[in-house]
Design a protein around this nucleic acid. Structure first.
Lengths: 182, 182, 182, 182
DNA sequence: TATGAATGAGAATTCATTCAT
DNA sequence: AATGAATGAATTCTCATTCAT
């Protein structure tokens, strides 16, 4: 891929993320293209359609999240500490998009699932798996209560840090972390 | 108001609530009308426009919530118990709609706020006030931790019970309640 | 026809005329009914449809015009004087409606002409005939120039006095009358 | 602006003028688009909405009228002759549209006047000013009667030549011109 | 009979997507 | 390859007309 094409593609993804965060899911393709300093045509050269763009953005976010999780896991810290560090990372990321993507996909029914969606779901599952491992470890270490499943721990964790406007150390994250303690 | 008109109006509100819960905010006026067994025209006889319909539905939900809160407050129970009882009520109600209404209103900017929206915001504020009183009481009773404001308690509470798919006693509500304890 | 039905009918015609004059051809049936203090249902009991109502209104106006013309003709005045007296009458009447009716009818093509329209056209022709007689007499008396047909005299006359906002003695009517002189 | 876009825009304006003249103000956007050999979307790319399209058409007509008036004024002819030449020009133009635009604008009330409407009114005023100058000159030259204002002369002039179906030399224009003579 | 609620076809408008320049 | 003009299906909303109360 040529350098300028790559640059354009990244600009689109970034701009779309910003606009989506700022103005909700109603932003039009035209607006995204314009905000990225491009024409719609160029946008469609890079992404097959709106859904495709959203999926790719989701992939982008997930890739970065996976990288972060992997690097934290590599540092061999206690699970509880990893969860706390992840709060810091996640609250700064536009993870809310992942939720709406998941909902949109669910709506369509399992059958009509795009290739792009399948890839994302795959990746999502992988990342969730990693996170659940961390949660499980934290439970085995006695830091997190044992009366809920690791999956539920992560569900909770996501609900908290993915919520729009989440900040590390705000009331909701503090209560969530305290509530998770054994 | 004629009996049949009243009945239709209620059907519309109920149907719209169901569809909105089931299929997200993208449902069209036509779909709502069809699902209610009516023509679009009838929707527009009862509600000025799409926004108006949504606002009225929000009012409907809020009125019922206020009634519930008032009745609980009237029973002079400890604040903590009221909060727990409210979990049971709220998780069965389509409160998520209130959030999306609030977001939509915010988008338009303060100036362009409709009369309907203003009323709803008013009512919302009233209900929130009642809830914060309950939270405050629970804190003074020593049941809820004191390091967060009553407003934050309620914010948390809402985030948990308004989330789509919330069930009383599920992991998220349990953790939230445990995290709130003093 | 019962007295109250007659009264309702007249109210509708009068109200419709007023609204049409005041707010243009965009007034809705509902508005007309409401302004007449009735429901739409009642309106449709008296008139088959919108077009029918307009035609009837046209008939109403035409009947009164014919009566006026006949009475003036009966007074055996010189043609020129009759024309001048008619200016006074016509500028106070909502004759503009007749033009728009004529245009609407023309649009539909000759074939699709309603029974109501046919009657009105008939009556219109009769009145025009009477007026042309007057014009012809005025020409024979030497008061009106002879280089245009009586039909043209009346066309002119109508264009002037039917124009919205026409007042006897205003610039346009004076110029028209002066221009018509032999 | 791209050449083809320019061409399409002009086609739209021309087609709309024709349809409006032929079928009255009820023509739909879809019809205009179809008649221009385009999709509705294209109309909306070029004009913000129906009103916007009409205003632009009005501007178009007015610009051409102003150019004509200016060129006639530049030829330093007697006022009376200019008026007569203008009859020839005006009767071939769809000036009736300007009247209906003025009425539509008036209906909305002064406050809600669009930017487009304001521009048009401005231009209309300018052209009317030019025409009144010509009328005034014709009066000073002794060709036009002095007992009416230049404004009234032009009002009359417009009423005659803007009327649908006006032809130079038809009865109405001849009478108007004769009536205006001193 | 009078009323006004219900209906649905039709008009304006938006926006994802395609295609000519 | 980039651009933005063109497209038309989908959506909101209106209003003449019908029909239940």
């Amino acid at each position: 891929m040529r350098a300028d094409a790559r640059r354009n593609r990244d600009r689109i993804v970034q701009t779309a993320l910003d606009l989506l965060a700022e103005r909700g899911p109603g932003v039009s393709m035209e607006e995204i293209a314009r905000a990225a300093g491009l024409g719609v045509g160029t946008l469609y050269r890079h992404f097959p359609d709106r859904r495709g763009l959203l999926e790719e953005i989701g992939m982008d976010v997930l890739h970065r999240l996976r990288a972060e999780v992997r690097s934290l896991v590599g540092r061999e810290l206690p699970g509880w500490e990893v969860l706390n560090l992840l709060v810091g990372y996640c609250t700064g990321q536009p993870l809310a998009l992942l939720k709406s993507l998941a909902e949109d996909t669910a709506e369509d029914g399992a059958g009509t699932c795009t290739v792009g969606a399948r890839e994302r779901i795959e990746l999502q599952r992988e990342v969730t798996g990693l996170l659940e491992e961390i949660a499980g470890r934290a439970q085995r270490e006695g830091a997190v209560r044992g009366d809920i499943t690791p999956g539920e721990v992560i569900e909770l964790f996501s609900a908290t840090v993915c919520r729009p406007g989440a900040r590390p150390g705000d009331a909701m994250t503090r209560v969530m972390l305290d509530g998770l303690r054994a």
